[in-house]
Computed example of a mutant assay.
Amino acid sequence: MPHNDPADGPGKRLLRRDLLAARNRMTPDDVRESADALARRTLGLPEVAGAHAVAAYVSVGAEPGTLALVDALRARGVRVLLPALLPDNDLDWGEYTGAGSLARVRHGGRMELFEPAGERLGPEAVTRADVVLLPGVAVDGRGLRLGRGGGSYDRVLARLEAAGARPALLVLLYDGEVVEHVPAEPHDRPVDAVVTPSGVRRFR
């Protein structure tokens, strides 16, 4: 996601830079093995096992892999919603119905994203999810998440709160990305749990 959230201070930018550099040193095999472990652990969570609808995303590059998880959810009959980035960095949503329902989209000079190719359901569609998977770069012991810096998921979290929606909020990370402290802003909201290849840690 883009890096232009005005609340994205220098402490966050420095931590993000270091962690993303570590990701970029990972091999494709490392990424694939981690993705399989993340899928197994996430699918075993009670809130995921009981979900009818999950708002997810398709990982890109060395991000913790989500495609195996998304496919497994769909195979279970779960409705999977995927985000589409809007010009103002907000997110619209569409339904994932298999690999053929994805489009590779480049937003300006930024990274290419995989977005739903079909009908757009509107930004409010996320409020009907039982579980929301949040992309991130780190999480700390309070459950505060460091995102990519665009503010898109801060809007999602604010929208959930305004609607009175209480989905389980999960972030998928590598083991070394659970850190002691993430610089926080007043608008930052904690996640419920972090899933890493080696385990699950809950925060509330």
Rank of each mutant, 00 (worst) to 15 (best):
A184C: 10
G94E: 13
L20V: 15
S198N: 14
L86V: 13
L160P: 12
L169H: 05
R32F: 11
V105W: 11
D175M: 00
G136D: 01
A21H: 08
A138S: 02
V131T: 14
R110P: 12
V179R: 03
V58G: 01
S34E: 14
A21E: 12
R17E: 03
P28R: 11
N4G: 02
G176T: 13
G11C: 07
G151M: 07
R40A: 15
A75G: 13
L14F: 04
V132S: 02
G9S: 14
D36K: 07
P46C: 07
D18V: 11
R202Y: 09
L113S: 02
H187G: 01
L134G: 02
A51R: 09
L144M: 14
V78I: 05
A117L: 11
A84Q: 03
W93T: 10
N24A: 04
L134A: 06
V200A: 00
D188F: 01
D5H: 07
R17P: 04
G108P: 11
L85G: 02
Y96D: 00
G61Q: 11
D30Y: 06
D36Q: 07
A75E: 15
L121A: 01
E47M: 10
L113F: 13
L38P: 00
L169C: 05
M111P: 08
T127H: 11
V194Y: 08
D36H: 09
L170P: 08
D188L: 01
D18N: 04
Y57E: 00
D36N: 06
M111D: 09
L113Y: 05
T27S: 06
D71F: 07
L157T: 02
D175E: 08
E124R: 02
G61E: 12
R120D: 02
E115L: 07
L69Y: 06
R23Q: 04
G94L: 13
G65H: 08
L20P: 15
G50S: 06
E119S: 01
G141R: 15
H107M: 13
L38G: 00
L73F: 12
A103H: 10
G11N: 06
V191E: 00
D30H: 03
V171T: 12
A68E: 09
R189N: 15
S198P: 10
R128M: 13
N89Q: 04
Y57L: 01
H52N: 08
P116Y: 09
A35E: 10
V156K: 04
G151L: 12
S152F: 05
V178E: 11
A125T: 13
W93L: 12
R106C: 09
A35R: 03
D92T: 10
A129M: 05
A158V: 10
M111C: 07
M26G: 06
A165L: 06
A68H: 04
D192F: 12
R155S: 02
D36A: 11
S152H: 08
P135C: 04
Y174G: 00
W93Y: 10
A158D: 14
R40K: 12
V132T: 08
A162Q: 15
V58D: 01
V195K: 01
L102N: 11
L81M: 14
G94Y: 12
V31R: 12
D90Y: 15
L157Y: 07
L45K: 09
V78A: 09
E124M: 07
H3G: 06
R32M: 12
G98D: 08
R16L: 13
S34I: 00
A184S: 08
H181C: 02
T196M: 00
G11V: 13
G141V: 15
R110I: 10
A99G: 03
A55N: 06
